[in-house]
Design a protein around this nucleic acid. Structure first.
Length: 511
RNA sequence: GCACCGUUCGUCUAGCCAGGUCAGGACGCCAGGUUUUCAUCCUGGUAACACGGGUUCAAAUCCCGUACGGUGUACCA
């Protein structure tokens, strides 16, 4: 593989939000470019004016920004091959289509969409599929079946036309794919694809080949859905007499349930986001949630995506972007599609979360606390986060694991109370309250020492006393080390919670 | 229908190109241990080469076929 002057591109169509399959394609391109010291280009393929969706391009750019995927050239930052939006390159495509006509590799076709649709329907009834191919083109309305005079007349009268590729009749095309190896197709199974539409815009096939050539793209890394049109693209390079780039077709990301390509429309139906960022459909107003909004860290999201279809060949699973760049290679991309496991995605986030410093997490958690109407000193939040971060996958889950640090129990878990609030609990906890009230050094360790000593001296059951105490302090049998909680909420709050607990729980069980 | 691509534990995957391993790891799940609780953590377990032929002393690995799945088959990308 020629690794000099690596130039790769990601070329989305701005027809809506980018789904994670697209993000992964972009990621692999990015990793490949960085790995080989090449350039990564963002080109917008908006040749279908009817499918334009407002906000889609902005969404795509914001997504990559969030992911930490950076472009060297493209619609964001320009570059030597500007413009990078195909609608702005409109004027350059026609001449290339005409070059192909001149060289006998393409032809004008005047059939209307309606006529072709009718043909399709007719053949469908006969259980056949209509294809505009080497056989059919002879009896359709085009510059092959018509004589030159007829064609000139039609063109002069501004009859709408398209330009089609003239596929050779019977020729073996041998192609190389970096992931799949040799792929062979006979041209007789292919059709005369439209290269240039009657609205004056090129189709994807023409535009992508012309632009990739003009932009000196060295490797085309794209989704497997493009593999069936690879022969056409290879033939186009040949017809232009251009050197073709290397190709790599990435396996698809599949729906987790059943099978099939993950699609934009899958949305929230699946119980996990398929988009990096939240997307609000400009027409229906429908909102699809994104990984960012669900609380995923971009590093975790990228890490998870990178391992979906690629692996380093050893047993490492956690990678920073730089480590991914270092480890990545196209050869280690798998051939088969992958469903992805939402559970494992959470695990990745957990791994990144527990690796963050308590201070960093506290800063992320404080806004959540504010929303809950809780004002606490940042120092305390840092300590609390340190105690509970192992228990959660997301920052927003910290609240569930730590609310009892901030608010005293309003009620007590009924099951826990039944199990742990015994007839003698009231008396034991009342006595314990006096012990705690007299503790001067209110550190977790010291409180633990004093309380355990008291339990020993009075020959009480550690489990019985401490569970009852936890119930009173937390409101349920959960949470981190009890004495850490007590030390953090402080003596006054502890004593208050004991009083409340005794009042509410005490009466119930004494009778 | 036709063309192309694919198929290893439930999921992500290693191993395949250069045949010889009890088919390895991770997530999940289950069990045990640690713990005053829950969670974490530790230990162990669970579970796969789609099927059928062939080549070979030996096949997950090479070849052929079948099945199943996917993609494509638009004046969409």
């Amino acid at each position: 593989m020629n690794m000099k002057n690596v130039r790769v591109r990601f070329a989305p169509s701005p027809t809506g939000p980018l789904h994670i399959g697209g993000v992964r394609t972009a990621l692999y391109n990015y990793l490949f470019a960085r790995k080989h010291g090449g350039k990564f280009i963002l080109r917008i393929e908006d040749t279908d004016q009817t499918r334009f969706v407002p906000g889609a391009e902005e969404y795509i750019i914001e997504s990559f920004d969030w992911c930490g995927i950076r472009f060297d050239e493209g619609v964001i930052n320009g570059g030597p091959f500007a413009p990078y939006r195909q609608s702005e390159r409109k004027s350059i495509y026609r001449q290339y289509a005409e070059k192909l006509i001149e060289s006998g590799n393409a032809y004008y076709a005047f059939d209307t969409p309606e006529e072709l649709n009718d043909l399709r329907k007719k053949q469908e009834k006969e259980k056949k599929t209509f294809t505009y191919n080497t056989v059919e083109r002879k009896r359709l309305k085009n510059s092959i079946s018509l004589n030159k005079k007829e064609v000139d007349e039609l063109l002069e009268k501004n009859t709408p036309f398209v330009i089609r590729f003239k596929m050779p009749e019977n020729e073996m095309i041998i192609m190389k794919d970096l992931i799949r190896g040799k792929v062979e197709v006979n041209t007789k199974t292919l059709d005369d694809k439209i290269l240039f539409k009657s609205d004056g815009m090129p189709t994807y096939h023409l535009a992508n080949v012309v632009d990739d050539h003009l932009m000196e793209i060295s490797h085309v890394i794209r989704g497997e859905e493009w593999l069936p049109s690879l022969p056409l693209h290879v033939m186009l390079y040949r017809a232009f007499n251009w050197e073709a780039p290397e190709f790599a077709h990435l396996p698809l990301l599949l729906k987790p349930e059943g099978s099939g390509k993950l699609s934009k429309r899958d949305g929230d139906r699946l119980g996990f986001p398929v988009f990096p960022l939240q997307w609000k459909d400009p027409v229906t107003g429908e909102i699809s949630t994104g990984y960012r909004e669900e609380g995923y860290f971009p590093e975790a999201f990228i890490n998870m995506l990178a391992l979906l279809g690629w692996n380093p060949g050893d047993e490492r699973e956690l990678f920073t972007m730089d480590e991914l760049i270092e480890a990545f290679s196209i050869e280690r991309v798998g051939k088969s599609g992958s469903k992805f496991d939402p559970e494992k995605a959470k695990w990745f986030n957990h791994q990144y979360l527990i690796r963050k410093s308590d201070k960093e997490l506290a800063e992320l958690f404080i806004p959540v606390l504010k929303e809950k109407g809780v004002e606490v000193k940042p120092d305390a939040v840092v300590k609390i986060v340190g105690l509970v971060k192992e228990r959660v996958n997301f920052v927003h889950e910290l609240w569930d694991q730590s609310y009892f640090f901030f608010i005293s129990p309003a009620e007590y878990d009924a099951k826990a109370a039944k199990k742990r609030w015994r007839p003698n609990s009231y008396e034991q906890i009342s006595r314990l309250k006096e012990i705690i009230a007299n503790i001067e050094n209110f550190s977790s360790e010291n409180i633990e020492d004093v309380v355990k000593k008291w339990i020993d001296e009075n020959e009480l059951g550690t489990g019985a006393v401490l569970n009852a105490l936890r119930l009173v302090i937390v409101g349920a049998l959960k949470g981190p080390h009890l004495f850490d909680i007590i030390a953090l909420i402080g003596k006054e709050e502890t004593l208050n919670r004991i009083d409340t607990g005794l009042k509410i729980l005490g009466g119930k069980n004494i009778s």
